[in-house]
Design a protein around this nucleic acid. Sequence first.
DNA 1: AAAGCATAGTTAAAAAATTCACATGCTTCT
DNA 2: AGAAGCATGTGAATTTTTTAACTATGCTTT
Lengths: 213, 213
Amino acid sequence: MKTLRVPEATVTRLSIYSRFLERLDRHGITTVSSGEIAEGVGVSPAQVRKDLAYFGEFGTRGVGYNVKDLMKYTMKILGLDQTWSLAIVGAGNLGFALCTYNGFNVRGFYIAAVFDNDPTKVGKKIGHLDVQPLANFPEISKSENIRIGIIAVPIRGAQEVADMMINNGVEAILNFAPVALNVPEHVETRNVDLSVKLEILTFNLGFRSAQSL
Amino acid sequence: MKTLRVPEATVTRLSIYSRFLERLDRHGITTVSSGEIAEGVGVSPAQVRKDLAYFGEFGTRGVGYNVKDLMKYTMKILGLDQTWSLAIVGAGNLGFALCTYNGFNVRGFYIAAVFDNDPTKVGKKIGHLDVQPLANFPEISKSENIRIGIIAVPIRGAQEVADMMINNGVEAILNFAPVALNVPEHVETRNVDLSVKLEILTFNLGFRSAQSL
DNA sequence: AAAGCATAGTTAAAAAATTCACATGCTTCT
DNA sequence: AGAAGCATGTGAATTTTTTAACTATGCTTT
């Protein structure tokens, strides 16, 4: 089998292209060129073509790409031709926001359950969900076929939650706690760190002044 | 002047190192090696040293780095030796979560104001803040010296909000709407896209199965 | 039907980022 | 004081990623 490592940056961009195509489709646009995609998402046309080339040939020379088709292909590649059930652990403000965030549903994610071990939160309603005690995780993750977990607890609890998830069959974790999780090799994790991007901005604001000295 | 472009990945990691050092410091640890930092944040020791080398020599050969000092240096480099006033536009769930998120204060960010033009939201309290109508942005951004704006509105409103921010002196924008903003060259923007990382996970879950066919 | 045009796909070159390996220099121990 | 040990800092090598240039192909128009 042809084993071709796909750069993570390519996957990231694919996700962005995919969303952009969705938007074009909603606007009734049927055809798009690599240049237009590039312009729309802020990369180079060559980059767009190169990224897509990892996965096949999706366009028509001289014409461009069929929006609907390419959208479907990209979603398929990203594994979004199925619905993924998610479990969120942590029903604080962040957990709450994630639960009510609409962007997930649109992309085929379904938040199946929210957990917290704070007794003042357990039982509270978030949208159509009741906040569950952590003790219910094994049962629910099984019945809902949870393969992806989201950690929205403070640093101190994050590793413990991760371990618990993994013990219950979770294969991938999206971690909002700013800490590197220690996980077995077969488990995928990615961190979302809300202040990193902000600090890139402050770095650049400062660096620019330094440059002009 | 020595002009040395610093890779964005380096800045990203610097932010992560910085937070890790903060944590070590809170635990009373005074000295740390590149290897320990690397282990703690999940990169290679050489990477840590290389990243730091862009900015100077902060360690002692044979010993390592002084935690407190390196923490201060990294924060200084990131521009966090001052308090940054932020304005959030969008008081939906995400805006709310961002307002109440504690991680920002810790790193020297201060949320000075929240805006929304939904009349049902204006005037509501989020923490100590009243949600302001967008019309108040010019006045408040001036009096609070807002240089960084956060966009937490849906796609459709994002560009308009960005334009408005820029017209009022905002120099950097953190954008949570999944769309590429069109901004003048002197304005820095970064997007935070909550579903991209999730889609990297689903890609990897699927790709792994594909590999083992 | 043929020619021209536009854009995808591909290969090669360039640039960027990471890793490697070692020389350097501080600290400690004898 | 000297030697040994250890971890930094750095220049070179490697790998990865991006950019650019080129080629091929399908559509449209004449």
